[in-house]
């Protein structure tokens, strides 16, 4: 079991973190979320081009880098921490599904950044469903893909990432019951990696604020009422990171452990992420309730992510089944 990043993975993290800090800091996130398309195409061009992230997990034979899920988790943690707007997660979920189900046609377009894709997660709802070139849907043990079709944008809780009602269907592009089952587990791991980033950034924000905000002539971080909550939040971060590393490792190296690790990841990290984002917002005091402060963006993403793959109890129920309880 490998729970510590390799040197290469650390370099990947630094590269993505550095890029996002420069190209998509929070003021840019706000500008993007209020723009027509909901994201900055220029950021995506460089993300997919310079950093090659659209092809990260696409097999080399289809034009990608063929990296592992451990690397993907590193990247998603950073895009989550930066609240990167737009279809990065949507296209990543599509890439996971296509890779696992054995697609040959669509992956090259995803790898080179020319295809924006998404996956229908819940009846007819999809992340970035209005912007996607291709909508994938799971139909039994087959994956279908539809270009076009009806798209109805939704106004949702999370202003940094859009959703739409879409039409499932289209041609069958891949088929594999086993691959699709694995992809569903990997969706849970991918979302958990993003949640880890949201959690971490929420904690970092309130820790930083605790060191500069003064009340009654003391930094608020010196009060145990704040400090002890932040310590508890740090404990959640440590455990969440450990769980995500383990799930990503299992995805790459221990297929038998993947299902349990993925259900654990959603059962723990989804809740921890919302709790930390919530407490971060509350501990900011009144300013945390303003639109201009960023705390609510993390809080809303955390809640949207927590329910993205279904009501949280389904992950706990799956864990119970896997544990044969």
């Amino acid at each position: 079991m490998k729970l510590v990043l390799t040197t290469e993975q650390q370099e990947l993290r630094q590269a993505v973190r550095g890029f996002l800090a420069a190209a998509s800091p929070l003021p840019a996130v706000r500008a993007a979320m209020e723009s027509d398309g909901g994201h900055d195409p220029d950021v995506y061009r460089r993300l997919n081009g310079e950093l090659g992230l659209s092809g990260l997990i696409v097999p080399e034979e289809h034009g990608g880098s063929g990296a592992g899920y451990a690397e993907l988790a590193v990247v998603l943690e950073e895009t989550g921490a930066a609240l990167l707007p737009g279809p990065f997660l949507a296209t990543t979920l599509a890439a996971i599904l296509l890779r696992e189900a054995g697609d040959k046609e669509l992956l090259p377009g995803i790898a080179d950044g020319s295809t924006v894709a998404t996956v229908v997660l819940d009846g007819n709802r999809a992340l970035n469903g209005a912007e996607a070139d291709v909508v994938l849907s799971i139909d039994g043990d087959r994956v279908r893909a539809l270009r076009g079709g009806e798209r109805t944008p939704l106004t949702t809780l999370d202003p940094t990432r859009r959703q739409a009602l879409v039409e499932p269907g289209g041609d069958v592009v891949a088929a594999s019951a086993e691959g699709i089952a694995r992809a569903r587990d990997l969706f849970a791991v991918a979302v958990a990696a993003e949640q880890l980033g949201v959690l971490r950034a929420s904690l970092e924000a309130i820790v930083a604020y605790g060191k500069v905000r003064v009340a009654f002539n003391r930094f608020i971080g010196s009060y145990q009422g704040v400090k002890h909550r932040l310590a508890d939040m740090h404990c959640k971060l440590e455990q969440a990171e450990s769980i995500v590393r383990h799930a990503a490792w299992a995805a790459d190296e221990a297929p038998d452990e993947l299902a349990g690790a993925a259900a654990l990841a959603q059962a723990y990290v989804g809740r921890a992420c919302f709790e930390v984002a919530r407490d971060s917002l509350l501990l900011h005091g009144g300013i945390g309730f303003t639109w201009e402060h960023d705390a609510h963006l993390f809080y809303k993403r955390a809640k949207a992510d927590e329910v993205l793959l279904g009501p949280p109890r389904i992950h706990r129920a799956r864990l119970a089944d896997l544990l044969e309880l």
Partner: peptide, 14 residues
């Protein structure tokens, strides 16, 4: 919102 799942996040009339 946790009980409702994915439907919780959409604003009504949308």
């Amino acid at each position: 919102t946790s009980l409702a799942g994915p439907e919780a996040v959409a604003y009504p009339g949308e």
